[in-house]
Write a protein that binds this DNA or RNA. Structure first.
Length: 639
RNA sequence: GCCGCCGUAGCUCAGAGGUAGAGCACGCCCUUGGUAAGGGCGGGGUCGGAAGUUCAAUUCUUCCCGGCGGCACCA
């Protein structure tokens, strides 16, 4: 006798063990048809497996959030089957479900070409049409290894060999295709549907290790129905439209050029945006007790040896030989800040010292890592180092978390999470010190009300850290801010202060950045706003456009009034129709247009048109300027 | 760095073993038009770089540089 409790609390009794499929059929024929897998006491299982004991069950259909992963995993299997049919010499490896889809890694001498994707996709649809039954088999380990070896599938054999001793070896068979898999799977390939698409081709290292051979990865996306597939593809198109590299060109913000790979040519408008952001951060940190400094670009090798960078970071550093040694372009500012700290004698009364620098750093990133503004070789950090006592870590971290949250909010990001990385196995500093530092970070995030996720053992060897992640307008996460406690660098570079007791003590250093790098953050900001910046950030805040040349003189007066009010405005008196001008400045994403014709010139007014808006508002020039000025002032500094 | 794809006008892209074309942009002319493209004419390219094959290479081959998508990297 088996009693199965359904999600609604009702109990079904069977006089012998039943399979998930039978249980679903007993509940109703509609459900039996829609059933994909079954959840038994919280664990997902194949419908074909018998349920021997009293359990809580739920039939999982495509509406269930758990179904998506199964669907995508199955899609990977169907793709592997299609590939094996079309290219029998290919070896299969692994193929998991991932966010929005799945991939499968294949090993073969001849790489796939983009045209293959269409063929594979067509064959996948055939396999779905065949509606092959998917069956689960439990195999003996050695037999399974031999079986795959004999098939020439050496990767699969390797995976089985490396599975933990106590793990059951299960194989899934669909048609002529058999694959090692933990499952669960759909009852048959027909249940997959056809809402999938192969999206890209890529190389990927076997087992994710760059010392291993490279496999061919095929990515795909897969959804419960065509509508969701289409929605996803549309979302991708939207993301492409707001790509910062594209908007950077269209809005004439910056360009990248092969003569300086990984470095940015900022155009006037982009540089205005950059400076606006930098000025904003400058105001905010000044109001929060930071002092700003500036330190050398190129520093002698000896300092990097002392700081430990030469040993740990050498490959990423640009160097230049000079007559009496080697200089390195700084990849970070911290050693230089310690040099400033060390000038003269510092008393405990002077602490904390919050030393900020918009420091230009260079890192020799691998060529394949470069990506628009997001990953560059030359960048400027909104960097600062807080020199303080251990007792001050809590208050400083709290203040930083508050400042950071407020900055993100001002810049349009409300959704912020924190990753907290605590002590790694190999570390410097005593356990008591780590206890204190970790407690301080934990306390600070809690006090600020930030949602925190623990990354155990992921801290740097020199101290625990917080990483701040923000979510953008289309749901993507970006790690930007950071706060790292450092017990080691002050020691290595011999920084000290005089304590209350008159003796020398080591300060603690907090490395911290809110934006990370201006370059990357601007990339994120461009995509977040899709180029439509709020007025205070917009590089061109307003365009004064004339309807006919009769209004030219008045338009110049309007422009001057805007300029006097500190607004970034441009004039468009070209011999073009107003429709043309409106279209052009709209595409350039200028937030405000002030349209003036003979009427406005006579009345001393302007017709205000907001980007994307249909309505226009006629205002007296003075009134319009006053309103825009207020709006363009941006967030206040003193918080 | 690794795998794959790509590099033709400022941009988006077509093309072919016999030194190139479209649309938009740009310049000039006409047009003075009230909220997302008015019309005409015109200028513009060592076809990413180097070498090789060939009577002839921008086209085919190799190498290099750069871009794109991943992977690896991001103390």
């Amino acid at each position: 006798m088996v009693a199965l409790t359904l999600p609604d609390g009702s109990v079904r009794k069977f006089d012998k063990p039943v399979t998930g499929a039978e249980a679903a059929a007993a509940i109703g024929p509609g459900l039996a048809k829609a059933a994909l897998v079954i959840r038994v006491d919280g664990k997902l299982m194949d419908l074909s497996r018998p349920i021997e004991r009293d359990s809580k069950i739920a039939i999982v259909t495509s509406k269930d959030p758990d179904a998506l992963g199964i669907l995508r995993h199955d899609c990977a299997h169907v793709m592997a089957e299609a590939v094996k049919e079309l290219f029998p010499e290919t070896q299969v490896t692994i193929g998991p479900a991932i966010e929005n889809g799945f991939y499968y890694d294949f090993a073969r001498d001849k790489p796939f070409v983009p045209e293959d994707l269409g063929r594979i996709e067509a064959r996948m649809k055939e396999i779905v049409k065949r509606d092959e039954k998917i069956t689960r088999e439990v195999w003996d380990r050695d037999k399974a290894v031999k079986f795959f070896k004999d098939l020439g599938e050496r990767y699969k054999a390797e995976i089985i060999r490396d599975l933990p001793e106590d793990e059951e070896i299960t194989l899934y068979r669909q048609g002529n295709f058999i694959d090692l898999c933990r499952g669960p799977h759909l009852p048959s390939t027909g249940k997959l549907g056809t809402a999938f698409k192969l999206t890209k081709l890529a190389g990927a290292y076997w087992r994710g290790d760059s010392r291993n051979e490279m496999l061919q990865r095929i990515y795909g996306t897969c959804w419960p129905d065509e509508k969701q597939l289409k929605a996803y593809l549309t979302m991708l198109e939207e993301a492409e439209k707001r790509d910062h590299r594209r908007l950077g060109r269209e809005m004439n913000l910056f360009h990248l050029q092969d003569v300086a790979a990984g470095a940015v040519f900022w155009h006037p408008k982009g540089w205005t945006l950059y400076r606006t952001l930098r000025n904003y951060v400058r105001r905010r940190i000044a109001a929060n007790g930071y002092v700003e400094v500036n330190t050398p670009q190129m520093v002698d090798r000896s300092l990097w040896e002392a700081s430990g960078h030469w040993e740990k970071f050498r490959q990423n550093m640009f160097t230049a030989e000079v007559e009496d040694g080697v200089l390195a372009l700084k990849p970070m500012n911290c050693p230089c800040h310690v040099q400033i700290f060390k000038q003269g004698i510092t008393s405990y009364r002077d602490l904390p010292i919050r030393m900020a620098e918009f420091g230009a750093c260079h890192r020799n990133e691998p060529s394949g890592a470069l990506h628009g503004l997001m990953r560059v070789r030359a960048f400027v950090q909104d960097d600062a180092h807080i020199f303080c006592t251990e007792d001050q870590i809590t208050a400083e971290t709290r203040a930083f978390c508050t400042l950071l949250s407020s900055v993100y909010k001002d810049l349009g990001f409300e959704d912020v999470t924190v990753k907290f990385s605590d002590r790694p196995p190999m570390r410097a500093g005593s356990d008591a010190t780590w206890d204190k530092a970790e407690a301080a970070l934990k306390d600070a995030t809690k006090a600020t009300g930030l949602e925190t996720q623990l990354n155990p053992g992921d801290g740097a060897f020199y101290g625990p850290k917080l990483d701040f992640v923000l979510r953008d307008a289309i749901g993507r996460d970006w790690q930007c801010g950071t706060l790292q406690v450092d017990f080691v660098l002050p020691e290595r570079l011999d920084a000290s202060y005089i304590g209350e007791d008159g003796a020398k003590h080591r300060p603690v250093m907090l490395h911290r950045a809110i934006l990370g790098s201006f370059e990357r953050f601007l990339g994120i900001l461009i995509e977040h706003y899709a180029g439509k910046f709020p007025l205070w950030l917009a590089p061109v805040q307003a365009v004064v456009a004339t309807i006919t040349s009769d209004a030219d003189d008045y338009a110049k007066k309007v422009l001057a009034a805007l300029g006097d009010a500190g607004l970034r405005a441009e004039l468009d008196v070209r011999n073009e129709k107003i429709n043309y001008k409106v279209r052009e400045h709209s595409l350039a994403k200028v937030p405000v247009m002030l349209v003036v014709g003979a009427k406005e010139a006579a009345d001393g007014t302007v017709a205000v048109r907001r980007l994307g808006g249909k309505a226009q508002e006629i205002l007296a020039l003075k009134e319009a300027v006053a309103r825009l000025m207020e709006e363009a002032a941006g967030p206040p500094a003193g918080r």
